[in-house]
Amino acid sequence: MAGDEKAQAKTEQAKGKLKETVGRAVGNERMTAEGRMEQSKGDARQAKEKAKDALRD
């Protein structure tokens, strides 16, 4: 389960980065903001998983 969550976090981060980059390239501020938001969600998910891992050890 934890590996699944970590993979999902990485996917959200990558998807967000791509969306942000495309948004900047085409000048779409909304897409850029959505990309940043997805990256933040991925970062938060990753931090949560790291905290869980730290508590397990």
Rank of each mutant, 00 (worst) to 15 (best):
Q13N: 06
E34H: 01
K19Q: 10
N28G: 05
Q39V: 00
A47L: 11
A54Y: 05
E34P: 02
E12S: 08
A14C: 00
R56L: 11
E29C: 00
G27Y: 08
A2Q: 14
N28S: 08
E34M: 06
L55E: 15
G42Y: 02
A51D: 14
A9M: 02
M1I: 13
G16N: 03
R24D: 09
A9D: 05
E34S: 03
G27A: 07
N28E: 09
A14K: 12
E12T: 01
A9S: 05
R45C: 04
G27D: 08
A54D: 11
L18P: 06
G35T: 00
R56G: 01
K50P: 00
V26W: 07
E12Q: 12
Q39E: 11
A2N: 15
A25P: 04
M31E: 08
D57F: 07
L18A: 15
K15S: 01
G27K: 08
G35S: 04
K41V: 07
E34G: 06
L55I: 14
Q13D: 05
D53Y: 02
G3M: 12
T21M: 04
Q8V: 11
Q13K: 11
A2V: 12
G42W: 03
G27C: 06
T11Q: 11
E20P: 01
N28P: 00
E29L: 09
Q13R: 11
L18W: 05
